[in-house]
Computed example of a mutant assay.
Amino acid sequence: MADWTRRNGNGLGKGQSEEILDRENQQMTENLSRKMNRLKNVAFDMQTEAEDQNRYLDGMGSDFESSQGLLSGSMNRINHMIGANKSNRKIMCYIVLFLVIIFFVVYFLVTRSSGS
């Protein structure tokens, strides 16, 4: 901001200094208005992003709940199959052995392909 008392002493009249002050105030008001608009846009963008993230998290929560239901149902069926009788235990051992072999084959293939 300029020192208007010096300018007044240099021959500017009271009316001219008031005009200069008015123009300067108008310019500062416009600058402040632009900055406020930018802040409002940023706040609106932040609100929109927060709402999107909340919707995403809500969807994730429901996905986890449905996965939990699916896994608990599977575990109940496996427990029922294990407890049914001796022949089911033998089948269960074969299934576990098969899964372990598949795991090692996939592990071998992944390490072999990433090593190349």
Rank of each mutant, 00 (worst) to 15 (best):
V42C: 07
M46Y: 15
R6L: 13
L57D: 03
S74N: 07
K86A: 05
D22G: 12
S33N: 12
R55V: 04
V106K: 03
F44V: 12
S62I: 13
V42N: 08
D3S: 01
L99G: 06
S67L: 15
A43M: 09
Q26C: 08
R6G: 05
Y107K: 13
L109H: 02
E30S: 12
F104A: 03
M36A: 13
T5F: 04
L21H: 10
H80Y: 09
F103T: 09
V100H: 01
R89K: 09
G59S: 10
Q26H: 14
Y107Q: 14
F44S: 14
N54L: 09
E18P: 01
A2P: 01
G115T: 07
G15V: 11
S17T: 09
D3L: 05
E51H: 13
R89V: 02
V42Q: 15
V100D: 00
M1L: 11
Q68T: 11
N41I: 05
R23L: 12
V110P: 01
D52H: 11
V105E: 02
V100R: 04
G11Y: 00
R6N: 08
F64L: 11
K35P: 00
Q26G: 10
S66E: 06
G73H: 03
L32A: 12
M1N: 12
G73M: 02
Y107M: 13
D22P: 03
